[in-house]
């Protein structure tokens, strides 16, 4: 049972500014049904250039709804420059706190606000900005290095567990925890560096048998758990020189991972842990079947 503040419960039970503004100046849509929470945030500017109205629609738990509701209250009357300075931390403060494992709800609110402002700025100037930028780190929840750096910076985070609570990264199979650690170190520098002493593994020259064994190990530990978490699986079919032939089973197409193809993710992992020369190929038979949830 979550220990929610009275303020969270108030905004959950009586949310403010529910709905979607017709012809909004800014609109931000983040999250997805597949990942369990999603938010559509819209605003309209007044003649003075300040946010005159803001509305939200949220699919998610009590703290996701409360974070969205409080955000709409916070931005009203602000200029876009002022609104841009709001961080997820401000949302948490206005709610009187959130349980650690629910911090990602405030981050989602912040992301929607940023997306809506970016939408406004790019209007009439060609395509809206890309939803995600950076390199994917957490394959389970599709979180990029840029997103991780931002939550670490904004909330002064020092542990992987905190990062998971704030943006979900690392919360699936856990295969990316090492990378998250490095990102924390990169942002926080000396504050966390002395805590860690483990040496970097040395690059080594592999025999063919060692290479296959290592590929199996990386697939088993870094890739399969993430796939399983999404109801799918991966199988190593063959290794021919630097070509790694794999088959995917039963993956879901509607999750965030679909932004990146599975093949790219597997290849990135193998490059990092085995050898940068490897090329991943999908077994032709499995490529023909849709990577989809069984629905009958």
């Amino acid at each position: 049972m979550w220990d929610y503040t009275d303020k969270v419960m108030e905004h959950f039970l009586n949310p403010k500014n529910v709905g979607r503004i017709e012809n909004p100046d800014g609109i931000g849509e983040v999250g997805s049904l597949a990942c369990g929470d999603a938010l559509t945030f819209t605003f309209k500017l007044g003649p003075d250039g300040r946010i005159a109205d803001a509305k939200f629609q949220t699919f998610g738990c009590a703290s996701a709804i409360a974070s969205s509701s409080v955000l709409t209250e916070m931005v009203k009357g602000l200029t876009l420059e002022e609104a841009e300075k709001i961080t997820n931390k401000d949302i948490v403060e206005r709610l009187g706190g959130l349980p650690e494992q629910k911090m990602h709800c405030s981050v989602m609110g912040h992301e929607a606000l940023m997306a809506a402002i970016a939408y406004y700025r790019s209007k009439g100037k060609g395509a809206p900005p890309a939803v995600k930028s950076g390199k994917i780190v957490c394959t389970c929840f599709g979180v990029t290095d840029e997103e991780i750096r931002r939550v670490v910076r904004d909330n002064n985070l020092t542990t992987v567990e905190q990062v998971t609570n704030y943006c979900k990264a690392g919360g699936g199979c856990g295969g990316c925890k090492g990378q998250i650690e490095k990102l924390i170190e990169e942002v926080q520098g000396d504050k966390v560096r002395q805590l860690r002493t483990a040496p970097e593994p040395q690059p080594r020259k592999l025999t063919n048998i060692q290479k296959i064994a290592l590929i199996q190990e990386v697939l088993g530990e870094q890739v399969r758990p993430a796939m399983r978490a999404h109801g799918g699986d991966i199988e190593l079919i063959d290794v021919v020189g630097n070509r790694v032939i794999v088959a995917f089973r039963g993956m879901c197409a509607s999750c965030k991972l679909a932004d990146y193809t599975m093949k790219e993710i597997v290849e990135a992992k193998l490059h990092e842990y085995v050898s940068p020369d490897l090329i991943v190929e999908e077994e032709t038979d499995s490529a023909q079947r849709p990577h989809n949830h069984q629905e009958s």
Partner: peptide, 15 residues
């Protein structure tokens, strides 16, 4: 559905 950061996905049974 257990909405914590680690398990935002629906239960393994529903899946």
């Amino acid at each position: 559905s257990a909405c914590t950061s680690g398990s935002l996905e629906p239960s393994h049974v529903m899946r």
